[in-house]
Every structure is written in C-alpha cells, then in structure tokens.
Write a protein that binds this DNA or RNA. Sequence first.
DNA 1: CCGCGACTCCGCCCCTGGGAGGAGATCGCC
DNA 2: GGCGATCTCCTCCCAGGGGCGGAGTCGCGG
Lengths: 225, 225
Amino acid sequence: MTIRVILVDDQPLLRTGFRMILEAEPDIAVVGEAADGEQAVEQVRALQPDVVLMDIRMPRMDGVEATRRIAGSGRDGENAARVLVLTTFDLDEYVVEALRAGASGFLLKDVPADDLVAAIRVIAEGEALLAPSITRRLLDMYAARLPSAEDPTPDTLAMLTEREVEVLRLVARGMSNAEIAAELYVSETTVKTHVGHVLTKLGLRDRVQAAVYAYESGLVRPGAI
Amino acid sequence: MTIRVILVDDQPLLRTGFRMILEAEPDIAVVGEAADGEQAVEQVRALQPDVVLMDIRMPRMDGVEATRRIAGSGRDGENAARVLVLTTFDLDEYVVEALRAGASGFLLKDVPADDLVAAIRVIAEGEALLAPSITRRLLDMYAARLPSAEDPTPDTLAMLTEREVEVLRLVARGMSNAEIAAELYVSETTVKTHVGHVLTKLGLRDRVQAAVYAYESGLVRPGAI
DNA sequence: CCGCGACTCCGCCCCTGGGAGGAGATCGCC
DNA sequence: GGCGATCTCCTCCCAGGGGCGGAGTCGCGG
C-alpha cells in the first residue's frame, strides 16, 4: 500500500528535490506535480492522491485557497486528500489560515528529510503533525484564549460592579438605555449612569465598543442570546 | 547544558521505567520525582527543572491543576518549567484542559522511548509538541470553528453587498462612522449610507445591534481582532 | 459615628448616529 | 441602448447617547 503524493510548488527545482527525497522511500510514490493552486486542485481531482505537499506562497491561487478547495471537498466526497503545508517562514497569518482551511500538517521548508518522510506517513494515516514552533504558537493562542472564557474577568472587567456588568450584558444585546431601564425596573437616567461608568472604567468610547468588549472578553458569547 | 527533568506519576514502577530511559541520555538528568500534584508543585519550586513529565491522572491534585500551577507561574516568574503531559488514553477533556492549563506538550504513554527523548529536547528549547492523534483533534476543532465563518451567510447576511459587509465588520470593531470613512478612504456620508443599508436589510435598529449581529452570525468572532 | 462604595435619580448640553430623499458614476446584463 | 445594482456623495432633521455636575439612599467596615 504505497502512499500517493502530489507536489505543489512554483519552483521546479524544489519539486525535484522533494521528489528525489520521496522516491527514495519504497512506500511513497510521487504521482504528480503542480506549479500553482489551480493546477493543484485539478491534479488532485484527476489523480486522487493520499497526501498533497503544498507550498503556501504561489501565484494564481495561493496555497491557502487551494488547501481549502482540496481539504474542504472531503466533506462531500469521502476520501479527501490530506494536505501537508510547507512554508519558508512561519508567518502567523498563513499558518492560521491554512489550518483553518483544513490542512493536516504544517512544516517549515528547512525540515530534515527524515522528518518530512515521517510526517507524510503520519498524515497518510489520517493523523496530523505540526512543526514544533507552530505547535507552540497554536498552544499559546489556545492558552491565551481560554483564561478569558473560564473566568470572564480580564482584569479590567473585574473593576465593574455587579450592576454595571448586568447593564453591560444588556448593552451587548443591542438594547437601548430605555429598554435596559424597563428590563431592570430603574429609570433611564440610572442606566445612563451605569453605562457611563462602564465606559470610563473600561476606557471605551461608546456602547458599541462596550458590546464588542463584552464579546471579546468572553463576558457574553455567540449563541448565548 | 543538561536538561533537568522531574517525573510526576503515582505509579513508582512507571517512574522507574522513565528514569531508566532518560538517564541513558547524556544530556538529560532526572533531578526529582513526585507521586501527586502537590508534591509536583513543591518539587518544581525547589528544584527548578526545565521539563516536567506529568501524568494526567493522579490522586490529591490532578495533573491538570498541577500543570496550571506550574505553567501558570511562568507569567510572573521568568523561567517556568515546561510541562509535558503523558496519558494512557487521549481523552478529550483532559487534553483540552491540560493544553488550556499551559502544557507544552502531550504524548500518549505508549510512545517509543526515542520519541519521548526527542520530545523532551524540543520542549526544553521552548517549542511544543503533540502526539499526532491529538494534533489531529486540535486541528479538527480549529477547522470546525471556521466553516461557520467561511459561509457567514445566515440567509439575511447574504443580502448585503460586499462593501456593506466590509462596513459591518468595522462597525463590529467599535469604529465610528468617521473612523470607518478614514479607513475606507470614502466620505462619512457614504459610510452612513452603507450603515443605513445594513440596518434596514438586516432589520436592525442601530449600530450596536449590528455589532451584536456580526458576532452572533459568525461574521466576526472573538479573538479575531 | 462617619466615611465610602454601590445604586439610584435629576437636568443640561453637545455631538454622533440614523432616516428621508435625491443624485451622479460605473458596471454588467438583457 | 436601457435597466438595475452597486458605490459614491450631498443636505436637512432630530432623537438618542454620553459627558458633566449634583444629589439622595442603603449597607458595610473602620
């Protein structure tokens, strides 16, 4: 059971290099090459590979979009090709976008040949694999995102009184001062006071920013309405 | 420059096994052992290791909490020990919790000795590393989060023109009409027109509701700012 | 007891925001 | 060519939002 691989990179030399590395492995076969995203999508459709080695920076259609087309098609069709993304630098934007696009792996181009081959085998089995520096970044984002969700008290939010948080929640539901007043059985003036306090305490300008802050801080979250 | 490691597991036999594997490496030294979370935290404080090999299931204080204490202390103190979590099963809850707690790595206990040693070296360098099956799960969660953002078209949103969506995004970042105008190089009047169209098309009253809608529809999501 | 913080309420003033209504430019499609 | 959609810009109007200053009640803790 050989692993069918397609190489996608706009530099022919690089493709040749990878091909030589991979052809040396008995269980891996390079069945196709592509120089840009559009070709890649066509090749994948035509050749039904197991793994696509994808450069992220390419002309015509970039690697992210190509990854989306290829990996995304797995939802309807059964056997989608797994995409292993390669890049020279570990630029944030590309990493995040590629992973969201459904890539199964992400390696830097300076990866040792052994690691590349090992990565292809892992990915062909349906697992996933990231370069350590990227894993680290992912985990950082992961760790950074949740503290704010577990205890929705990112410092500044802790300065608000109970009532102010209550008002902020209602602001974040798009309610006007009058509506909030009716909801809380207080006068509109009182609501304005609370809103004012929230704004000054959080260093915000208007209720729109307050609503945004409520979502960003995790105080309210999508779907909770 | 040897890597100082502490082993944390409630099974003495397992600790001995790991110790034998690691002591065979010239650049790794096992400087301590602990049988539960509380001991682990003490040992880390006392011995200042580089890497903590942590079992996730333990009496007294579980691995997640211990990880939180150890990795979390890195925010104030400078050199926090990196935590490499080990587990028998790749149970979702533990994985997610441990990663959120700040673990730098996650491996299954059936990992080959070579891989374990390699993982410790990677983590000692400040990078991160996950078992492929866990990487896969992480990416799936990652990718699963986006589909709703890829087609942010809960019917009504589809009625907006490209420009209107663009304006809506900026409104959802708390920007005023004047700021949006500056950002898009158009007049404030134009922005007001677009905002007005967005409101009427979506059946909303003001820009606050528009911002809320942007979050609720998945057009923008927390953390994406 | 007195101070302090939280919550409540008032009036005044100004500015942003949003509605109404119109208009010119470009593009693509019939 | 004509038509619709999109994007752009304008004026007039006024209600709501937010800053500012002031003030009253309650409960807690020094």
